[in-house]
């Protein structure tokens, strides 16, 4: 049986050991109190983490200059969606220069996997993945986002316009 001989004398005092261990904690506490901007904790509801431009958040339907939807109801996003969460109802437009437009554009946000394939499939830059993080909501609320929520919600300030112009697109034959 091996017996460990503990050193006698000063090392028997436990209080210095505790204080030495607490020094690390106290040092971090004082550093955090005096250097608030270098603190790594993000105080979430007050301050937000800055996302990159490529962040895939809640969807945005872009609008034209007159405020109507840019979407032409070509169903490419609904066909390409791996989760099958997009449902579009198309209709004929009164204006003869516009072929089709969506009466209803609904995304079931509980099925969506935020992969961004709808954004890649769209030929007219009508749907984008926005900069907001995914939402949490109480069960029983409306989880099927319609056009009002996707294109004209209050965070977008009346809709996001695409930089690609329609006339330029037609002249290039796209």
């Amino acid at each position: 049986m091996s017996v460990v001989k503990r050193p006698e004398g000063k090392a028997n005092w436990y209080l210095p050991g505790i204080l030495t261990g607490m020094m690390i904690t106290i040092k971090h506490m004082i550093f955090n109190l005096t250097h608030r901007k270098q603190m790594i904790t993000i105080q979430y509801p007050e301050e937000r983490y800055p996302y990159s431009d490529r962040f895939k958040g809640n969807h945005i339907l872009t609008v034209k200059k007159d405020g109507s939807l840019r979407c032409t109801a070509c169903m490419l996003c609904a066909t390409y969606c791996p989760a099958e969460c997009i449902s579009i109802t198309a209709a004929e437009h009164d204006d003869p220069s516009v072929e089709k437009y969506p009466i209803s554009y609904e995304i079931d946000i509980l099925r969506c996997v935020f992969c961004g394939l709808c954004e890649e499939a769209c030929p007219v830059d009508a749907i984008r993945m926005g900069p907001e993080h995914q939402t949490a909501a109480i069960a029983g609320e409306n989880f099927i986002y319609d056009i009002n929520k996707l294109a004209y919600r209050s965070g977008l300030k009346g809709g996001v316009q695409s930089k690609v112009d329609d006339e330029e697109r037609h002249s290039r034959g796209l």
Partner: peptide, 30 residues
């Protein structure tokens, strides 16, 4: 929801940690 009664749904695949924190705020609001 077929197994247990769910109070808060957090959409996303996976959701950001901010979404999980906001789900806790929603739960406290409920």
């Amino acid at each position: 929801e077929d197994i247990v009664p769910v109070d808060i749904y957090v959409a996303g695949c996976p959701p950001r940690p901010e979404s999980i924190l906001s789900s806790i705020l929603e739960l406290q609001k409920k």
